[in-house]
């Protein structure tokens, strides 16, 4: 639509017309603020927690140290693009090995603005406890815990239910 709109405006005599072709999806996917009735809806990006990171050239020992009790370390490029992950057995490798040699390449990620109820449903069915959240560019936002999302959705449901009860009463 926006290319056609840009052309239309130019045909109507506007000179400085620009097409933000990546659009609203790009904006919300990057976690930028918005307006409107759904602007405050819960999203994976808002629940994502900061997570330990390392580079391809780091050692497994470094990744293990950074992962700590959290149990996971995300591998990123110098500008934060997600490349891989170390967790569980991959963190138990010889500490001298490089991260690049043992990492789980191309982990599953979700967008900042993914529809949370559907995502939680998929995570529950797959038995997944956490998931990497990224911006459209692939830049790491953080790690979202399924338990955080479940708690938030339960709270939203309770508030909605209380509101309905209040209206009915």
């Amino acid at each position: 639509m926006s290319p056609r709109a840009a052309c239309r405006l130019e045909s109507l005599g506007f000179i400085a017309v620009y097409d933000y072709a990546a659009g609203k999806t790009d904006w919300t996917g990057s976690g930028l603020p918005t307006g409107g009735t759904q602007a405050d809806m819960p999203r994976p990006g808002r629940l994502a927690r900061e997570t330990p990171t390392c580079r391809l050239t780091d050692t497994v020992a470094t990744a293990r140290e950074r992962a700590g009790d959290g149990g996971a370390c995300i591998v990123t490029s110098d500008n934060g693009i997600v490349l891989g992950r170390l967790r569980g057995k991959t963190l138990e490798h010889d500490g001298a090995l490089s991260v690049a040699d043992v990492m789980e390449a191309g982990p599953t990620t979700v967008r900042y603005d993914e529809f949370l109820p559907d995502l939680v449903d998929r995570m529950q069915k797959a038995g997944v406890g956490s998931i990497v959240v990224t911006k459209p560019s692939g830049e790491l936002v953080g790690l979202m815990q399924r338990s955080d999302a479940e708690e938030l959705l339960a709270e939203v449901h309770r508030e909605h239910h209380d509101h309905d009860d209040h209206d009915a009463g």
Binding site: M1, S2, A6, F14, V17, D19, Y20, G23, K24
Partner: peptide
């Protein structure tokens, strides 16, 4: 998009850049 008529766009300032957007590519 369907409402981009000469009358509708008269509210835009022609001296300022205009950025249009929709969903995505």
């Amino acid at each position: 998009l369907k409402e981009l008529t000469p009358d509708a766009v008269a509210t835009l300032d022609r001296a300022r850049p205009v950025i249009v957007y929709c969903h995505d590519f």
